[in-house]
């Protein structure tokens, strides 16, 4: 296994109290595999990724438990300089907002070239040549002329391509993409997702795709982990979950999105709001919003029950959820 996150806990110490952002997350990604982590804002999907990447702001953040095994080494036990080497060369991250993630006063060529001068000790001239090659590879037209441009001179889709080029530069074995296409228009979104999938195939990388878009997940993922209030509530191969969700939250999400191919009547809406991480409800965190909640849900935290091979659901009533289609 390329990456294995085991029982990860992350807290944020704030003035109002301790916010439990991640509460015992387990997931794994193999080479060439795409794991989609699905969740709404505050579900802990980005915080988990930041902990894996080692870019969590500490303090106020604190990893209070768990292991992150990357190629069988626990990243949390590495020395800072070893960690930095892993982060730079073996894993890379793509962010949602390319404009604020790129340095506005450096040309894209300098930023791409830095990957080679810092990590590979190349000369600036060679690095520039490699930058042009990379820009060509992510299909930026007239790469040779544009290598000296600044980020603001590119369109949103082109900037996201440059982000992808930077992430791919050192051919890492794991890419974490945090909402890579959320800020883009649909036609550009399709181009960028295609490019990402193609490069992933070529380099046989593991990909963690963090998103809230059930459509994008259905398009590219192999397996999926649904997060709610810092926990994984359901994991599954991608096909099964869309056909028969085994957790009421997943089911609610799938029913609440309007469809392009159907004109529906009233949309199903999950009642209420996601919980405040300072005061996560006892028992199952979803119980105040759940149509199936019973007394046991208010008191007992549901474990991840085994539904079938590769499928888990953190619901006391997963059987009933599956059956009541």
């Amino acid at each position: 296994m390329l990456l294995e996150v085991r029982d990860l806990h992350v807290e944020f110490h704030t003035r109002e109290g301790v916010a439990k952002a991640v509460n015992g997350v387990n997931y794994s990604v193999a080479e060439g595999e795409t794991l989609a982590v699905l969740g709404e804002s505050g579900s802990g999907k980005s915080v988990t990724a930041q902990a894996v990447m080692g870019i969590l702001d500490m303090p106020p953040g604190k990893i209070s438990g768990g292991e992150i095994l990357f190629k069988d080494r626990d990243l949390l036990k590495l020395k800072p300089e070893e960690r930095r080497r892993v982060r730079g060369q073996e894993m890379a991250m793509i962010f949602q907002d390319a404009l604020s993630s790129l340095n506005p006063v450096m040309t894209v060529g300098e930023q791409l070239g830095e990957m080679f001068t810092v990590h590979r000790g190349m000369s600036r001239k060679d690095a520039r040549t490699r930058s042009v090659e990379l820009m060509d590879r992510v299909r930026i037209p007239a790469a040779k002329e544009r290598v000296g441009n600044y980020p603001h001179q590119f369109s949103g889709g082109m900037r996201q391509r440059i982000m992808i080029a930077m992430a791919m530069a050192l051919e890492p074995s794991l890419i974490i993409a945090d909402e890579p296409t959320t800020a883009l228009d649909v036609t550009v979104q399709a181009q960028v997702m295609d490019l990402l999938a193609e490069l992933q195939r070529e380099l046989n990388m593991g990909l963690i795709l963090i998103t809230h878009d059930l459509g994008v997940v259905a398009d590219v993922a192999d397996k999926i982990a649904v997060m709610y209030a810092g926990r994984i509530v359901e994991t599954s191969p991608v096909h099964d979950i869309y056909q028969a969700p085994a957790h009421p939250y997943t089911k609610g999400l799938l029913r609440s999105i309007p469809r392009l191919d159907r004109k529906g009547r009233e949309l199903y809406a999950i009642r209420g709001l996601p919980p405040n991480l300072l005061h996560i409800p006892p028992g199952c965190a979803f119980h105040p919003r759940c149509p199936m909640a019973q007394d046991v849900c208010r008191t007992d935290v549901p474990p991840l029950y085994r539904v079938s091979d590769g499928r888990r659901s953190a619901c006391h009533f997963w059987k009933e959820t599956l059956d009541a289609r």
Binding site: Q189, A190, D194, G215, V217, A218, D219, R259, L260
Partner: peptide
């Protein structure tokens, strides 16, 4: 535009015909 919208159904992945527009 319509063909570029991701459909929340993995069964559609292989069969869906997509028109990819190039450029901006």
């Amino acid at each position: 535009l319509l063909s570029a919208v991701p459909v929340p159904d993995p069964m559609a992945r292989e069969s869906r015909e997509r028109i990819i527009l190039h450029g901006d």
